[in-house]
Every structure is written in structure tokens, then in C-alpha cells.
Computed example of a mutant assay.
Amino acid sequence: MTDSPIRTLTRRRVLPVGENGSLWETRPSCGIFAFRGTRLRLVVEDPAEILFPTDCGLSLISALNGDNAPGLEGVRALDIGAGSGLYSVALLAAGAELVTALDINPASAGQTTANVVANGLDGTRLTCVTSPLEEYTPDERFDLVITNPPHLPYDPSYATGNGLETALVARRGGRAVYDSVVERMDTLLAPGGTLLMAHSSLADIPRTVTELTARGYESETLEIFEMDIPLLAYAEHKETMLTLLKERRAAGQAEFDGSRFTVHALMFRRPAGATGR
């Protein structure tokens, strides 16, 4: 893959080719992972409704176990696109004061709550909201926002409208949720707060970094992970999806090599003196 300035001096972890879930410590009928000294367990009751977290999402969890990761104790956090509750569970286990799990998929609330309770965490510190990001207006801004947006390009030939599509596919060439996050961040994140994002190289990382830094946010890449493009769920439409991705690559809006791409664990800090829009 072509080097870019965003990757300078950032550790890059290359995950094995063709191995699904290689960041999971254990994944039989459920997923088990370690986060900041605690072993946590994640279950998805209906994989057709809620995507079991992939390496793309888990990469941010892995990066947050590193030395340069921000503190999570006592934060008020927003988990955008909560899905099965991977980030909500991890944040609460790490000492977050309150976590709001936001997802457009109604099935997310029940599964996230179940996973929080199953890990022995305080369910009263969790609030689940079913809403599009564009329509969500919190009472107060958050200290921390965390997200792993869908990043595969939409095409009518493989549109399903189920939870799997919600988690993986987005319009505007896979950028719809990234664009919404950037647009809404000043209204969601408190001055001095932190945005944590698992950002796919298939969805124009430089654009997101440029737009947020133009708003005054400080940008840092915690870690880079190279892995397989998650085409297994779209095997029948693999060529259609790859054609769309190649078009985006030719336009300078995606980076990948064959079936391998990268996920950047990004951290953006909002200036303490920012007043917002």
C-alpha cells in the first residue's frame, strides 16, 4: 500500500491473511477479550440482526490497551453505532461514569444491555438510544465519543436493510456515517473532550483528518492494523463491491491492495477553549 503522512512513525500490526477474528483472544460461540486488565465476554444472539464485532471494530479496543491511550475513568461517553455493545462494555469495565449507546438498529439496545449485565457491570450507568445520529440531541456534551462507522460502499444489488447492512455498508461510497460524525462532533463532544475512531482506509481517512483538524481538533494515530476486506458476508457480490472500491481508489478516496486494507485507530482531541457551532 502507498504510504501517507498519517502513518508516519505509527506502529502497524499486520493480521494474518484469511483468518477471521484473529484479534479475539477466544471466540467459540461468543467472543472473549481482555481490556485494561479485565477479561470480558461478548455474545450476539442473532447474527442476522446484529453483526458480531469484526477485527475492524476490535482493532480500536486493541489500540486502547496501549501506553498512549487516553484515560477512561470517570468519563461520560457516547458510543456511536453501538451494535452488540463492544465499546460500551469495555468503557464501563474501564471505569466510565456513564455510557450512552446510540444505534439506528432497534436490536442493538437489548443486546448491548444484555452484554453489559452479563459482564457484571452496573446497568444503571448505561443508557441505550435508538435514533439516527443526525437526529440525536443529548442534554449535555460528552467527555468522550467512540465509534467504528460502517465503511463498505452501498449498492442496490446487495442491499438487505438488516442489521448486517447497517453495521457494514453506508451510502456516499461508505462515508455517510463518517461525514455525520464529523458534522455533529462539535455538538456532541465537550471542549477538551476526545473522539476515538476506528477508521477504514476504504473510506478516505485523509478527508476525515483534514476536516476535523480544520475545526481545530488535534489528530493522533494510535495504531494501524492491516487485515482482509470483510467480503465474506458479500461473497455473492464480491466483484461488484470490489469494482466500487477500485473506483474510489482511482479517485484517491480509498486505499487497499488486493483484498487487504488498513484500519487506523485515530484519536482526536477537541481544544479546551472551543465554543462549538
Rank of each mutant, 00 (worst) to 15 (best):
R11I: 11
S259K: 12
T2H: 14
N148P: 06
R27H: 14
F33C: 01
G74E: 10
E236N: 10
D204C: 04
E236P: 05
V117T: 12
P106D: 06
S200K: 02
L42G: 00
E135A: 14
F142T: 04
A170T: 00
S131P: 06
L231G: 09
V177F: 02
T54S: 15
R13W: 11
R12V: 12
T221H: 11
I6F: 04
L58R: 14
T137A: 15
R39V: 08
R172C: 08
D155M: 02
A167Q: 00
I146P: 01
G18E: 06
L188W: 02
P47S: 09
T137V: 12
G174L: 00
A107W: 05
A272V: 11
E140D: 11
T221S: 11
L15N: 08
R27C: 09
L144Y: 13
V181H: 03
Y136P: 09
T275A: 13
E49L: 12
V99M: 09
N65K: 05
T262E: 13
P191V: 06
P132Q: 09
S200F: 02
G252V: 04
V182Y: 02
I229W: 06
R12F: 04
D122W: 08
A170S: 01
L189Q: 01
L266Q: 13
R41M: 11
R215P: 03
T127S: 15
P150W: 00
A90R: 01
T10G: 08
T130P: 10
F33W: 04
